[in-house]
Amino acid sequence: MEAIAGIGKAGLLSSAAATLGMRLLRKRGKGGAGAAVLGAAAAVAWFTRERGAPGAIQAVLFDLDGTLVDSNDFHVQAWDAAFREGGHVVPVEAIRGQIGKGGDMLVPALLPHTTKHQQEALAERQGEIFKSRYRAKVKPFPGATALLQQVHDDGRQVILASSANQGDVDHYRRLLGAEKLVDATTSTDDVSTSKPAGDIFAAALAKAKVDPAAALVIGDTPYDVEAAAKCGIAAVAVRSGGFSEEVLRGSGAIALYDDVAALLGGYGASPITRRA
């Protein structure tokens, strides 16, 4: 856990995250507002460092699929169906190994010779299949809502930061009964590039108005951990998404739990409650 201490030293990572956040906001025509938000966040981060603040986690950025809700296998099935409809046979295990990425990153990884138009069409079709056939079958993992409640009750921001589209994020927020617990959400609708790029977490930092050292990511795939690292955020991994301990630790996770119920059970000693 000591590995996460000092991440924000001298404000270097804060500046990098702010720059990335500004690029994202400019893409969406919100550069002016973004400058004010990120500038204020940077000022707060500098002030707390100068005052010797203890470095408590202020915002927890939660992935959704495979972390809070049991949906990864359904996404695999939806991708398999979309690929087959498009005349592509991709091994199911290969698809499973890419779950956690958005369609913009997953399709070219599996079908590198397809055109941009074909990739977008496949991703759109997967979303349609998932929504019509599988989304209603998705259930929250045990302990998911209780963990969000605990983080909220402790005065920390709860941010949902997912490679899903905003429609799915809103559906899961209702499914979790977390409308009053969630402070903000980010999705592929907010950015141009999904995980493992850092865009989604950079957008989440901008919305939470916190320094990377004051944030923590909870995710189930190596792509969550990699995306967090690109923003200077430490990440805790859960095995509920199907990735092995070796893969998750190899990606740089600072701590590993079987699932969110196990994280809730060990909450008091978890990185969420750490102080630098």
Rank of each mutant, 00 (worst) to 15 (best):
residue 1 M to F: 05
residue 4 I to S: 10
residue 6 G to T: 04
residue 6 G to D: 06
residue 11 G to C: 09
residue 13 L to M: 07
residue 13 L to H: 10
residue 16 A to G: 14
residue 17 A to D: 07
residue 22 M to N: 14
residue 23 R to C: 15
residue 26 R to D: 15
residue 28 R to L: 02
residue 31 G to D: 15
residue 37 V to H: 11
residue 40 A to T: 15
residue 41 A to D: 09
residue 47 F to A: 12
residue 47 F to H: 04
residue 47 F to E: 01
residue 50 E to T: 05
residue 51 R to M: 06
residue 54 P to Y: 01
residue 54 P to W: 00
residue 55 G to N: 01
residue 62 F to K: 08
residue 67 T to V: 07
residue 70 D to G: 04
residue 72 N to K: 14
residue 73 D to S: 11
residue 75 H to K: 15
residue 76 V to L: 11
residue 77 Q to L: 13
residue 77 Q to N: 10
residue 77 Q to G: 02
residue 79 W to Y: 14
residue 82 A to W: 11
residue 98 Q to Y: 03
residue 103 G to L: 03
residue 104 D to S: 11
residue 107 V to I: 08
residue 107 V to S: 02
residue 108 P to L: 03
residue 115 T to M: 06
residue 121 A to Y: 00
residue 123 A to F: 01
residue 124 E to S: 06
residue 125 R to N: 03
residue 126 Q to E: 13
residue 128 E to D: 10
residue 134 Y to P: 00
residue 135 R to A: 06
residue 142 P to H: 07
residue 143 G to S: 15
residue 146 A to H: 12
residue 150 Q to N: 08
residue 152 H to Q: 13
residue 153 D to N: 13
residue 154 D to P: 02
residue 156 R to W: 02
residue 160 L to F: 05
residue 162 S to W: 15
residue 163 S to M: 02
residue 164 A to L: 00
residue 165 N to W: 05
residue 169 V to H: 03
residue 170 D to W: 00
residue 174 R to N: 13
residue 174 R to Y: 03
residue 175 L to H: 12
residue 181 L to M: 04
residue 186 T to H: 12
residue 186 T to P: 10
residue 188 T to C: 07
residue 189 D to T: 13
residue 189 D to C: 11
residue 191 V to Q: 11
residue 195 K to R: 13
residue 197 A to Q: 04
residue 199 D to S: 08
residue 203 A to P: 12
residue 204 A to F: 12
residue 204 A to P: 13
residue 209 K to Y: 00
residue 212 P to D: 03
residue 213 A to K: 08
residue 213 A to H: 06
residue 214 A to Y: 03
residue 214 A to R: 14
residue 217 V to Q: 07
residue 220 D to Y: 07
residue 224 D to F: 01
residue 231 C to S: 10
residue 236 V to K: 08
residue 237 A to D: 10
residue 238 V to L: 09
residue 239 R to C: 15
residue 242 G to M: 08
residue 247 V to Q: 12
residue 249 R to H: 15
residue 249 R to W: 01
residue 250 G to F: 12
residue 255 A to S: 13
residue 255 A to D: 11
residue 257 Y to G: 06
residue 267 Y to R: 09
residue 269 A to K: 01
residue 269 A to W: 00
residue 272 I to K: 05
residue 274 R to S: 06
residue 275 R to W: 00
